[in-house]
Design a protein around this nucleic acid. Structure first.
Length: 429
RNA sequence: GCCCCGGUGGUGUAGCGGUUAUCAUGUGGGCCUGUCGAGCCCACGACCCGAGUUCAAAUCUCGGCCGGGGCGCCA
C-alpha cells in the first residue's frame, strides 16, 4: 500500500519508526533551508518536514509541487510537541502520485469565500473541506443507524423499481423517459410498491429510496432528485404504530450520531440536545386554532412555509407530529376517518421531514377513493391487484434524508446534504 | 409561475459616466532552518454577450444568456 498510517493512526509507539503517509498537499511553507508540507488525508492533517541540506534534490522537488497534488511520503515519524499532531514525518522518500493543475478552480484552504454555486461546480474539491466532508460522514451514520434500527425491529430491506409504467400516484409531476420506445416514468416514491409488498407476507419492509420529482420548484429545501428512508408495516392497529417507529428511529439515529460523530458535529459548529420521547402529537385542528390567533387561516387550508414557521414559533419543541389532516390534504391511499385522514407529518424546526399514514387496505374502499378523486383505476391495475387477494391493515412513512440532515445540522440549503444535487437548473456535475 | 437581486482576474470583492479598474486570496519567481491564516520583495491575471445613448460606458437604456434569494407549486 501507498500508506502505512492514516494521519489519526499514528501514536507514540510509532515515534522513531519509519512510516508511509499519503494524501493531498494542502499547503507548503518553504522557509528556505527547511520546509513544512501540510498533508491531508481522509482522517485529518499531518506535517511533513523537509530539510534542504539533508537532500537538496528531494527538497526542491517537494517544495515545487502544486497545492492539492497527491503524494506518498516515507520517512521517520518524529515526535515533536510543537507540531499539530505531536509528530512530524522527516522526509526521506517521496512518490508523486498525481500533480494538481494550477490554478485550482476553488481553494480548499484559501482565506476567501467561495459561492455555493462555485462549490457545487467543483464538488470534488469542495468535499476536501472538513465541514463539507463532515456532512457526508454524518449522512453515512444517519443512514447506517436508521437501517440498523429498522433491521432490529424486523424490517427487511427491499429495492423497488425506479422506472415504472404507471405515471403518477398523484400530487407531483414525474419525469417521463423513453423505455425502448415506450413511455415510462421515474417513480416519485416507492409508495405503491412498498404497499404492494404488504400483501407478500414480508410484513415489514424498508428502502433507502430515491425520489424523482419533476416539479419546477426552486427553493433551498427542494430537490428534483432526493433520497428517503421509506418504510411500510403490516398488521398495525393504527397510524400510531407507525409514528412510534418514526420517532424511535429518529431518536436512535440522533443518539448514535451524537456518540460517534462529535468531531464532525464540531466541524459544523452544531450542538444538539436530544429531544425526549415521545414527540408531541398535535392535531391539525389544534394547528388551526393556534394559527387563527395570528393569521387568517381556514380549516382545510394547506400548511405553507409561513404557516409551518409560525407554528414552530408557538411551540417549545423542535420535533413534533402534526396528525389528523383534512382528508383532502392527503393522497388517495390515506385511511379516511370521517373528514380526516389518519395521516401525520413529522416536523423538525418548522419543516416537514417525514410524512406517513395508515393506508387503506380494503380494495373497494380504495377504488371508491380513487373514483372520488377522479383517478383512472385502469392505470393502477398492478397496484390494485395486490389488494384483492389478502391485504392486511398497514401503514408507513417516507422520511427525507436530506430534509432531516438539513434541520439536524442547521444548514441553510438542502443541496448541502446531497453530493451532486439535481435541481431545476443543475444537471451537472 | 410570481416578486426581488446580481454577473468585474482562477476565487471572493471595490468601483456605478472620464481611474494606470480597488483590495484580498491565488499563481509564477526571489529571500529566509521551526512554520502552523508563516513573513518580506517582484511579477501575472478581469469588466457575460449584443444593440443603443454619449465627446466618453464596467458604470446609463433595451434585448439576450447565465446565476442567486424569497414565495408558490410540492406522497
Amino acid at each position: 500500500m501507498l500508506r502505512s498510517h492514516y494521519s489519526n493512526e499514528v501514536s507514540k509507539k510509532d515515534y522513531g519508526k519509519k512510516i508511509r503517509i499519503a494524501g493531498w498537499i494542502e499547503d507548503i511553507r518553504n522557509l528556505g533551508g527547511i520546509a513544512f508540507i501540510i498533508l491531508r488525508d481522509r482522517a485529518g492533517r499531518m506535517q511533513i518536514t523537509a530539510i534542504k541540506k539533508q537532500n537538496p534534490e528531494l527538497f526542491k522537488e517537494i517544495v515545487s509541487l502544486t497545492r492539492e497534488s497527491v503524494i506518498s511520503a516515507y520517512g521517520i515519524c518524529q515526535q515533536n510537541s510543537k507540531v499539530m499532531n505531536g509528530w512530524e514525518l522527516l522526509l526521506e522518500e517521496m512518490e508523486v502520485l498525481a500533480k494538481a493543475e494550477t490554478p485550482l478552480p476553488m481553494g480548499v484552504i484559501d482565506k476567501v469565500n467561495v459561492d455555493f454555486d462555485t462549490r457545487l461546480d467543483n464538488r470534488i474539491i469542495d468535499l476536501r473541506r472538513d465541514e463539507v466532508k463532515a456532512i457526508f460522514m454524518i449522512r453515512h451514520s444517519f443512514i447506517h443507524y436508521a437501517s440498523d434500527f429498522l433491521r432490529k425491529k424486523g424490517f427487511v430491506e427491499v429495492h423497488t423499481p425506479k422506472i415504472s409504467a404507471s405515471s403518477s400516484e398523484g400530487g407531483t409531476e414525474v419525469f417521463k423517459i423513453d423505455y425502448f420506445g415506450r413511455d415510462a416514468f421515474l417513480v416519485q416514491s416507492p409508495q405503491l410498491y412498498k404497499q404492494m409488498l404488504m400483501a407478500s407476507g414480508l410484513d415489514r419492509v424498508y428502502e433507502i429510496a430515491w425520489y424523482f420529482r419533476a416539479e419546477e420548484h426552486d427553493t433551498s429545501r427542494h430537490l428534483n432528485e432526493s433520497t428517503a428512508i421509506d418504510i411500510e408495516m403490516a398488521f398495525i392497529e393504527s397510524e400510531e404504530d407507525v409514528m412510534k417507529v418514526a420517532e424511535e428511529l429518529t431518536d436512535y439515529a440522533i443518539q448514535k450520531i451524537l456518540d460517534e460523530n462529535s468531531e464532525e458535529l464540531d466541524a459544523l459548529h452544531v450542538e444538539v440536545d436530544l429531544p425526549s420521547l415521545p414527540y408531541p402529537r398535535i392535531s391539525y385542528d389544534e394547528v388551526v386554532e393556534i394559527l387563527q390567533k395570528e393569521i387568517d387561516f381556514k380549516w382545510g387550508d394547506d400548511l405553507g412555509t409561513d404557516e409551518e414557521n409560525l407554528l414552530a414559533k408557538h411551540l417549545d419543541y423542535e420535533l413534533y407530529f402534526i396528525k389528523d389532516f383534512p382528508l383532502e390534504a392527503k393522497p388517495f391511499y390515506a385511511m379516511p376517518s370521517g373528514k380526516y385522514a389518519r395521516a401525520f407529518d413529522l416536523e423538525y424546526k418548522g419543516m416537514e421531514i417525514a410524512s406517513g399514514a395508515q393506508r387503506i387496505h380494503d380494495y373497494s374502499l380504495l377504488v371508491q377513493r380513487m373514483n372520488e378523486l377522479g383517478m383512472k383505476t385502469e392505470n393502477f391495475e398492478d397496484y390494485l391487484k395486490a389488494f384483492r387477494y389478502g391485504m392486511p391493515p398497514h401503514g408507513g412513512f417516507g422520511y427525507g434524508i436530506e430534509r432531516f440532515l438539513m434541520r439536524f445540522l442547521n444548514l441553510k440549503n438542502i443541496r448541502e446534504c446531497i453530493l451532486f444535487p439535481r435541481d431545476r437548473k443543475r444537471l451537472r456535475p
